[in-house]
Simulated scan of single mutants.
Amino acid sequence: MMTTVTSTATEQTTRMTSAQRREQILAAARRVFAESGYAATTDEVARAAGVSQPYVVRLFGSKRELFLATYQQAAEEVNTALASPPEGLSPEEAEDAMGAAYLELIEDRDLLRLMMHGFIAGADEEVGRIARHCLGEAYRLYLARTGGTEDDARRFVAFGMLLNVLVALDATGHKGEDVGMDGLIECVFLAANERRTA
């Protein structure tokens, strides 16, 4: 009979802290909720994270609390990116820097799809509060950083939302299906690329 010897040193170096495990679960929840929305289960999140479902529930309490934590993290990421350009830039530089920061977020399609699911799940008062704050903060940050007009801020937020919707729909992956959508994609992404290279 063979006995297996385990190295406690190896176990200690690979064992995650509860904070690391929490982040691992939140990352998995972002992917799962981005794919399936609020209909996703804690069991699906647990499988994606490589942990047990009871462990997820023990850490977060319920699916709702897990969704809220995941959504709050995503909203904070959006607002942190929009706040990242340093103060003291000219209005044009500030707008370009904020636009470029948002365009970098677009690389994470899960983040944007999760945000869209949150807008849909906004009937939940707490999810709605987070979603409203995220949009309102984008508007406020634009005014504060650029000194632009309220109309400028509205256009900036609206353009960002349009980009979000197009990315969430994987619009560029379906070019050729609809003439109107093709025209919209070309117009929007041309404007986004101009902002990125400005």
Rank of each mutant, 00 (worst) to 15 (best):
M2C: 04
T4C: 05
T6W: 03
S7V: 05
T8G: 07
E11P: 00
T14L: 12
M16I: 12
S18A: 13
A19V: 11
A19E: 15
Q20L: 07
E23I: 06
E23R: 10
I25A: 10
L26D: 00
A28S: 08
A29H: 10
A29N: 07
G37E: 10
Y38M: 15
Y38Q: 14
A39C: 06
A39M: 10
A39P: 02
A39Q: 13
A39H: 12
T42I: 13
D43E: 15
D43K: 14
D43A: 15
E44A: 15
V45I: 12
A48R: 15
A48K: 14
V51R: 01
S52D: 13
S52C: 08
P54G: 11
P54Y: 07
Y55W: 15
R58L: 13
L59P: 01
F60H: 05
G61T: 11
S62W: 06
R64W: 02
E65P: 04
L66T: 06
L68W: 00
A69V: 04
A69H: 03
T70F: 06
Q72Y: 02
Q73G: 08
A75T: 09
E77F: 03
V78G: 00
V78R: 00
T80Y: 05
A81S: 10
A81M: 05
A81T: 03
L82T: 01
A83R: 07
A83L: 10
A83H: 04
P86C: 11
L89N: 07
P91V: 05
E92S: 09
A94L: 06
E95P: 01
D96G: 06
A97D: 02
A97M: 07
M98N: 07
M98S: 10
A101I: 11
Y102N: 10
L105E: 06
I106V: 12
D108F: 00
D108Q: 02
R109N: 13
D110P: 00
L112M: 08
R113E: 01
R113V: 00
M116P: 02
M116F: 04
G118N: 01
I120S: 06
I120L: 11
G122V: 05
A123M: 07
A123K: 09
E126A: 08
R129C: 03
R129F: 04
R132F: 00
H133W: 14
G136F: 11
G136H: 12
G136C: 09
Y139P: 00
Y142R: 00
L143C: 02
L143H: 01
L143R: 09
A144E: 15
A144I: 07
R145S: 06
R145W: 09
G147I: 11
G148A: 04
G148W: 08
G148T: 07
T149Q: 00
R154K: 12
R154S: 13
R154F: 08
R155D: 11
F156M: 04
V157Q: 03
F159E: 08
F159N: 07
F159D: 08
L162G: 10
L163D: 01
L163A: 09
L163V: 05
V165D: 06
V167I: 13
V167D: 02
A168N: 01
A171V: 10
G173V: 08
G173S: 15
H174C: 11
E177C: 12
G183K: 07
L184C: 14
C187H: 12
F189V: 03
A192Y: 07
E194M: 13
R195A: 14
R196E: 12
T197G: 01
A198N: 10
